[in-house]
Amino acid sequence: MYAQMVKTASNRVKTREEMSPEEQHFQDKIDNDVKIEPKDWMPEDYRRTLIRQIGQHAHSEVVGQLPEGNWITRAPTLERKAILLAKVQDEAGHGLYLYSAAETLGVSRDELIELLHEGKMKYSSIFNYPTLNWADIGAVGWLVDGAAIINQVALQRTSYGPYSRAMIRICKEESFHARQGYSAIMKMAFGTPEQKKMAQDAVNRLWFPALMMFGPSDKDSVHSEQSMAWKIKVKTNDELRQQFVDQTVPQIDYLGLERPDPTIKWNEERGHYDFAMPDWDEFFNVIKGNGPCNADRMENRRKAWEDGAWVREGLLEHARKKAARKVAAE
């Protein structure tokens, strides 16, 4: 899930009696699964919440290029290098669709990027963890894209049309990434003892951060209720997390790796795996900026943006000159 702890702009859900006729009409559409489109009337809080959520999602795709990009120049074969390049290219493309979806709500890509760089917007906590060995690249595709898919499949039903359509398009590529990630880590898990060690190390390090991607437990998740009522969110954090664990544990077992959480156990009665929650103190620290890579990631993004200013200005100026010459010639 690339949008965690998105603050809903309002504190509680309004009752029907408290709603204006416009709001009632809006809520009726949502309740009947009619998509909200950019030109439709929408409550200001709905618009602001969506900008936060879609913006955070877009930023995650863009910052997410960094931990994977970290291994492009060290990929061990030409084919692995090509697969990784194609994946990172897809992620940048996802960023692009999502910024476009946010733009339909009246905020520009550049404004959102400025907010990110000023620390006023976030991206997913997962990208503040490092990629330390080659198996991490497989593990990221399998676990991180895998977790993202679970959230994003749910979001295909989200109430805002452009966001929903972006999710449908993105999900197809994410499933491909997850499959490729699993096949990469399979090579490692079934390879030499050193390769197997890398695979185990990657799973051990990335398991709990992957669980954090779904956000805090429902009981501590203060902003969910309004988002659920507006169908900006469709399932709760804990529901999605359970779905991820249930899907992933058998895959870990198949690889012949040790489970990264020794308390994982099938619960016959619930029909689900029991598992340990991640360390939420660590999670809140990462969100606050104290994760292992927060400072580096932001420094890299800011540097890319600042170093690139002359390029963006140069190309704009050229477009202006060209337009002026065209006018002069007419």
Partner: peptide, 20 residues
């Protein structure tokens, strides 16, 4: 490919990855 994620604008990240 060294440019991945570090280029001046998102469209260039995509184009450079594609070239690589």
């Amino acid at each position: 490919s060294e440019w991945c994620g570090h280029s001046p604008v998102l469209e260039e990240d995509i184009a450079l990855a594609n070239t690589a």
